[in-house]
């Protein structure tokens, strides 16, 4: 049993601007824990988390793969999230490297086919198109869940980057919910980017987080090339 990262340094004020780890975070941790031996035997060199928020997931991966063996790159469009990511890394003795940016744009030129592990718990809640675009522009907590059409507006943009970034035996973990139409996601990934995936049914609890109007009934998709 790998312990959940220590988040005791984060305060209620932080969670006004940054997504607080919840059920969807924990299913991603469960998937990584299930794969711990495989992930270690891959001897990964670079991991990249998109939308790292509190920094909980990359810190957890750090406790699996080792704090100094891997470069833990984390991006988030929200500057508050980048601060929390760095603090959570320090708290858990994993040197996380947050970059305040959208998806992986400034890394594409240099990390072609060289990222071994990509992690993404995306904004997957179906909303109006404008709500999702507005949330990305505002760079605050709403951007962590507002997902636009089918909840896939942000995730769909990232798929082409995954194909560019992932190393030959690299692995991509994505959190998705039924409303995202998971079979259609798998088809698009396979047909457009030759990414084979399998669905990991980890949780079927239904949570309603009233403050965020976010409900969760989801799975983790693990994909590789």
């Amino acid at each position: 049993m790998i312990p959940t990262p220590d988040l005791s340094h984060l305060r209620a004020e932080d969670y006004e601007h940054v997504y607080e780890p919840a059920e969807d975070t924990f299913i991603l941790l469960d998937a990584l824990e299930q794969d711990a031996e495989q992930l270690k035997s891959m001897t990964p060199r670079i991991s990249l988390e998109i939308g790292s928020g509190s920094g909980c997931v990359s810190s957890f991966l750090g406790s699996i793969a080792g704090p100094s063996a891997v470069l833990y790159l984390c991006t988030d469009i929200n500057p508050h999230a980048c601060k929390c990511t760095i603090a959570t890394g320090r708290q858990n003795k994993v040197p996380l490297e947050p970059i305040n940016t959208s998806l992986a744009h400034p890394l594409l030129a240099r990390l072609h086919k060289s990222v071994d592990i990509i992690l993404f718990n995306p904004p997957y809640v179906p909303t109006a198109y404008d709500e999702a675009s507005g949330a990305q522009k505002d760079r605050d907590i709403e951007g962590s869940w507002a997902g636009g059409q089918d909840g896939m507006q942000v995730t769909d943009k990232f798929f082409s980057q995954v194909a560019d970034l992932l190393s030959p035996h690299g692995r991509f973990y994505l959190v998705a919910v039924a409303q995202n139409n998971i079979p259609a996601i798998q088809r698009r990934m396979e047909e457009n980017y030759a990414l084979e995936s399998k669905v990991r049914k980890i949780s079927s609890t239904f949570l309603s987080l009233d403050t965020l109007h976010r409900s969760f009934f989801g799975d983790v998709l693990a994909a590789n090339i």
């Binding site: 470069l71 790159l73 490297e97 970059i99 744009h105 400034p106 890394l107 030129a109 240099r110 990390l111």
Partner: peptide, 12 residues
């Protein structure tokens, strides 16, 4: 920002 990270960033 360690220099290894700086070395991976390009203007976009």
């Amino acid at each position: 920002v360690r220099l290894i990270t700086h070395n991976l960033l390009a203007c976009h």
